[in-house]
Design a protein around this nucleic acid. Structure first.
Lengths: 150, 150
DNA sequence: CTAGCGGAGTTCCTTGAGGGAACCCCGACT
DNA sequence: AGTCGGGGTTCCCTCAAGGAACTCCGCTAG
């Protein structure tokens, strides 16, 4: 398919896609996050082809999103999120927020997320890191930054 | 390639991916957001194949993310974000946050985002919609919701 | 000791999506 | 009448996703 490489673009969206933008990858990260750490579990849960799963897991390990740990003295491995991997989950939570709002229908959200700090079922609310007010597309101006392209 | 359909899964991440998970789609949305509303502009900016761009634009219009507007009495069209499309940008901002933090390197972020409400260059901070405290992967418990699978 | 099992891949074949270039349509200008 | 330019459509080629079969290798049961 000779897919275009997004990693070289001067855009953090493109670069992030280079890490987690391939089909299945976000779902693999979700599975690992909810405690499905082994190859067979993930493969059966998603119904993904074993070949593609191997590829995705290796890619994520290479990029430092997942860590591969032996869990037996047999050659058995578990995959766990690294710190940067866990932070990627912020992106998935944003997807959950949008999907719950626009695609869940009247059945309601398929999965609930409880915020441990306050104990409430909740969702993420993107806020400005400076002033703490809501920060959405319509509240934003875009400007070139220091790492902008040549 | 007979890609698996994510839209039917009982998971808001998968459903959101069904809308914006294909290659190029997030970058198309970004381009439209920053004011590149026409086919030729987007095609040249991204270097995407015209065929794929047509497909992606149609898909996004069908899903109600983009709106196709004539802008001349010639057959010319512009694409604009709908409300639900603009809200999808929350997901892209989460990608920007992660990419800026982990992939920008010492050159710094390629693009800056200014929060119009406070005037500061900033980034999004995911917070709990209930208590307002930070909400990350490590602060969350996952539970089945009303729309869970069969 | 051999047979079988189960986790974790690897190999191989088929199908179809992405890349890329060429082509088409159509209203407007010259 | 000819050309331009936006917005696609068509065609061919390559390579990635699906899916099934196969491999490897330590453990365990007979």
């Amino acid at each position: 398919m000779q897919r275009t490489d997004f990693g070289d673009m001067a855009c953090s969206i493109a670069r992030t896609l280079d890490v987690m933008g391939e089909p299945w990858t976000p779902l693999v990260i979700r599975d690992v996050f909810v405690g499905m750490n082994r190859f067979e579990q993930i493969q059966q849960d998603l119904g993904i082809s074993r070949k593609v799963l191997t590829e995705r897991l290796n890619h994520l390990v290479e990029r430092g999103i997942l860590e591969r740990r032996p869990y037996d003295n047999r050659p058995r491995y578990e995959y766990h999120l690294t710190d940067r991997g866990a932070e990627l989950f912020d992106v998935l939570m944003a997807m959950v927020g949008w999907g719950d709002k626009w695609l869940a229908g009247k059945a309601g959200p398929p999965v609930l997320y409880r915020h441990r700090a306050c104990g409430e079922v909740s969702h993420v609310d993107p806020r400005c890191s400076r002033c703490g007010e809501p920060m959405h597309a319509t509240d934003i101006d875009v400007m070139p930054g220091p790492g902008a392209a040549r």
